[in-house]
Simulated assay, not measured.
Amino acid sequence: MSANEIRNIYCIGRNYRLHALELGNEVPEEPLVFTKPTHAVVPMAGNIVGLPGNMGEVHFELEIVLRIGRAYERDIDTELCIDAMALGLDLTLRDVQSKLKAKGQPWLAAKGFKGSAPLGEWFAYPGAAALAGSEFVLMHNGEEAQRGNPADMLFNVSELIMYVGEHYGLGVGDIIYTGTPAGVAALHDGDQLQAVWAGTTVGSCSVKLV
């Protein structure tokens, strides 16, 4: 699926307890959903990703991304809705987000800017049991920056699909960024990033602040 085939981009905030706590946020009692425009998607395929360099810190957040291949219906086996997965970055203008949160305003300016959703290659979804037994890692300039286990999600894949499907609708071509583990930090010009799933690099890029 290319960027122009993606329909809706749903993102889940604070879906790992330690990430919520590291930013001083409350741990949510139900999924916290926001969206990004499709223009946020860029490949994470060894390319350079240009990001705003004059709007404060840009933070990386590595996440499991689910691709929907069958529309959600009530009482459907949610496993049937997923036809692939990837690792992607939910990039965040953290200083901008902090100002928006203080004013009670939407996060779009902090989360939806062009290039804010680098996306690695799609690969087969292994099923819920195998997913919970795997780990994903973000390497930042050759050093481990984040390590996540889907078993630590506050709301698992099935719960996310049901929640998004019931509240907003979920159809073919939609994708879900499922939340990031702890360890987020600011990016700098020239940084190198690698997304690793079960020991295999499935996405990489370098950063250019402009």
Rank of each mutant, 00 (worst) to 15 (best):
S2E: 14
A3I: 07
N8L: 04
N15F: 05
A20G: 01
A20R: 09
E22K: 07
G24W: 14
P28Y: 13
E30Q: 08
P31K: 04
F34R: 01
F34H: 05
K36F: 01
K36D: 05
K36N: 09
A40Q: 06
A40N: 02
V41L: 11
P43E: 00
A45F: 05
I48S: 15
P52Q: 15
M55D: 10
G56F: 02
H59N: 09
F60D: 08
L66M: 07
R67I: 00
R67S: 13
I68M: 06
I68E: 11
R70F: 03
Y72N: 05
I76H: 06
I76E: 04
E79R: 05
C81M: 07
L91D: 01
L93I: 00
R94E: 02
R94S: 10
A102F: 04
G104L: 00
W107F: 12
L108Q: 09
A109H: 13
G112L: 07
F113I: 04
S116R: 02
A117W: 04
P118R: 06
L119R: 12
L119M: 06
W122D: 12
F123T: 09
F123Q: 07
L131G: 05
A132Q: 10
F136W: 14
M139S: 13
G142F: 01
R147W: 10
P150W: 13
E159G: 04
L160W: 12
L160I: 14
L160R: 03
V164C: 14
Y168W: 07
Y168K: 01
G169A: 08
G169C: 05
L170I: 15
L170G: 03
D174W: 07
D174Y: 07
I175N: 03
I175G: 05
I176V: 15
Y177K: 00
Y177N: 02
Y177H: 10
P181K: 03
G183I: 05
G183E: 13
V184S: 10
A185Q: 15
A186M: 12
A186T: 13
H188K: 10
D189V: 03
D191S: 14
L193W: 08
L193A: 14
Q194Y: 03
V196P: 15
V196G: 03
W197S: 14
W197N: 09
G199E: 13
T201R: 14
V207P: 00
V207A: 08
